[in-house]
Each structure stands twice: as structure tokens, then as C-alpha cells.
Design a protein around this nucleic acid. Sequence first.
RNA 1: GUGGGUGUAGUUCAGCGGUCUAGAGCACCAGACUGUGGAUCUGGUUGUCGUCGGUUCAAAUCCGAUCACCCACCCCA
Length: 425
Amino acid sequence: MNLNPPQGMRDFYPEDMLFRNYLFDKWREISRIYGFEEFDAPIVESADLFRRKSGEEIDEQIYVFKDKGGRELALRPELTPSLARLILSRIKELHFPLRWFGIVQCFRYERAQKGRKREHYQWNVDIIGEESPIAESEVIAAAVNVMTGLGMTSRDFKVRIGHRGILHDILKYHECEMKYFNQICLALDKRGKIADEAIKEMLKSDGLPESEIQKIFKIMEIRNIEEIESIIDNKSTSLNNLKELFNLLEIYNLKDFIEFDIGIIRGLAYYTGIVFEGFDVERKYRAIFGGGRYNNLLQNLGGKDLPAVGLGFGDVVIKELLEYKNMELKTNAKPDIAIAFLSDNERDFAIKIAELIRKKGISTDLFLKPEKPKKIFSLCNKMKKRFVILIGENEKETGSVTIKDMNSGIQEEVAINDIIKKIAP
RNA sequence: GUGGGUGUAGUUCAGCGGUCUAGAGCACCAGACUGUGGAUCUGGUUGUCGUCGGUUCAAAUCCGAUCACCCACCCCA
């Protein structure tokens, strides 16, 4: 019998749930503070919902299966198509802009690797129905606040911001041939990951002439918006858009967290404008979160265009990063109090004491059978209990309990009425 | 889908053709008796050496297949 979970799927032991809940709580808290409402959708959707979106290629990466009625269903690889479905079916009654978020489990059928599994949880934040870059800035601000809430600073991570349209404009200015746009995007994406020479080779084998390749490398050197301004004129709406976003983010006081990066492309075909990704400064990990503007959200479902900005923030990379930085978690969710008894004669008395404490909302772990004191204290020590309440013959007779403070090692006999005072002062 | 790496006690790993009747650290269990944990000490347990097959007098060790995990690519969240 193979005890492993299916390939790329994850088990969450209690100690893993500690981190997961910690992260989810952070996501929820920031969502609430930034005024987003939570929603969810089925984890299983009609396979067509996901296919329709971005061509055929995605098909191979979706878990597809047939239900007993022969309908083709899929485990969701992402939340956005479901979001589009929900919005479209209430398009008349919803008032925009909408701010929705979800914390959802997604699946992708592909080989697992560092920072990527076949299954992950993802925080999704979307603002639907707003053209202005203030939508982007709200979403980016929320993501940055999650990061800082997890203890990260601007020395640990940066949000790199790019713009598809600007790349287009620059290429046009350089009179690059647009038929190579996809290859150019690919080359930009590769920069920093593989050697420049290898990129050149790649472009060459794609059929780009030497002159074009040189232009592209010049473009890749662009490091800030001012450089772009000096290259292309002010009529570029994309450029103005991006400038406005940077101004806005300065008002949010996020200047230290953001950088312009012409190389941020993002794969998804549906991004239409500003795109951004969060990275650790050492670049040891892949993007922590990413998102951007996708103004044709509803098109694929037969609706009208609706401006939208979205963000996805997965649980896998951030966990690896926090572990690497030794910042994963400090809380201990285990019960603080343990109640133990020495023989069956005291069991019922111990139950009554446990219930008394639990009625006060205090987390209490009750031993289920009698144990020797040595074992009781040894176990409680391992489980890091704060207090151990011991009940034996003596205690039962006098109607009291023995409470031991595991930190100090001091113990005393306490009357029933004084227990709460002792353990929860 | 392609390429590479790794599977040995609960766990992290060492051993890489004959003394292996397979080890080490950590973990675990036990240290007269009575109602008391954490440090140290002493003793002890733990394994179809991933699975199946092959080569050999001899296989954890070599070869093949298979499964699983990891890493990279492809692609992307």
C-alpha cells in the first residue's frame, strides 16, 4: 500500500494547518481591511468553462473527468472563470465596481517542482468595473500589506510592475516587427534566468534578424519610466497609465516596495494592461504573487467587456520563503490546559472539572484514561502545556485539584471555585 | 511531455561487490518502590536496504524494469 498522497497533492498535518490557518487569517484580515467581500464557487466546474478561456493548450493541464451522466467536469485550475460566471449571471443587479476575494484550492495537472505543486491554495482579489489604475493600486496595496503582515519588509521583497501596452509602444517606436511580439515576450521573460547569449541564440533560431535582436536587448536595458518617456512621446496612453499608478502608489506610501520592470510579461493571454509580480529580492523563488488588468473578463462567456484587475497569491512559494527566512510561525494553537487523573475512580470528577473550564471558553485537553504521574507530566511537557491539572484520590476527597505550572514547576492544591482564577487570571 | 538526481530504522542520513548477523545522530521505550516533566547518564527497541526480475559462489552495493519523491526544462499560478 502506497501511503503517499497522489502525485503533487498535499497532506496537511496539524503542524501544517498551523501555518495554513495563519496565512489564511492574514489574507482574510487584509481583505476585510481593504473592503473586499468573500465569495466562493464550486471546486468542480464544467470543463468548458476553463477551456473557453485561453485556447487549447491549457487543456492538458486541467484535471478533467466525466461524471456518471457523461458530463465533462474539471477541477478548477484557477478562480477567474468562475468569478466571471458568477458576475455574468447577476450582471443586471450587481453594482460596480465590485471588490471580491476568495481563498480557494486550485489544481493543475503538471510535474511538481519547487514552489509548484499540482494542488495549491490561492488568495484571489479582484476589482471589477473600474478603469482607473486606482484599482491596481488598491490590489497591490492589499498584497503588500499581507507581506508586511507576515513580517516581510521592502528589503525582503519587491513588486515589479510592467505594462503590456508600453512594451508594444516601445517596439513600435523601434520599428520592431510585430510578428515577433510573442518571441520577444518570451525573451524578456527569460532574462535573468538564462544567459543573454542563450537568449540571442533562441531568438536567432526563431528567425529574428540580428538587427532586431540588438534592438530587443537595448529595450531590455530599460530600468525606469523616465527612460521610456525619453524614448516615446507622451501620447502613449499606456505610459500615462503606468505613471499614474506609480503616483498613486506613492500616495499609499509604497514607494519602497515597487519597481518598474519591463520584463514583467505574465503568461496568461488575457492580461491587457498593467501587470505586476511580487518577488523576493534574492530571486531565489518564483513569483510570490502576481496579477494585472484583464479588461476582457466576460468576453469569453459572451458578455460585454468589463474592466477588471486581479491578483493571485499562492500558499506554496510564500511558505518556502518564510521558512527560508525562519519566519514561518510563532503561535501554538494547542490547548494550554491538560487535565489528568490517576485512577478510574477520579474519571468522572475530572470530566466535571474539564467541562467547568471549557464553559469559560478555555481550551482544555482531557486525558481519556488514567495515567501515572510520571507519564502525565512527561507527555504534558512534550505537548508544551501551560498548566496541568492533576486529580487523584486526595483531590477528589477534598473537592479540589492540583494545578502545576509547567513553566515554573510550582504546583498547588486549589479549590474548585478558584481554578479559573488560577489558570486564567 | 523531456532531461537529471534520489529511494537504507519514526526521521535525517552513513555504508556502494565478501567481517552487514546493515550502522550513527535525533526521536521512541525503560531505569527498584511511593502521586511529578524538562538537563545529564545507563540500557533497549525499531528495518522485506522502494518493488520485481537479472548477473554472481556471494547483492543494500552491479545491471534492467517498475513505482515514488526531488530538481531543472516546457508552460504557468
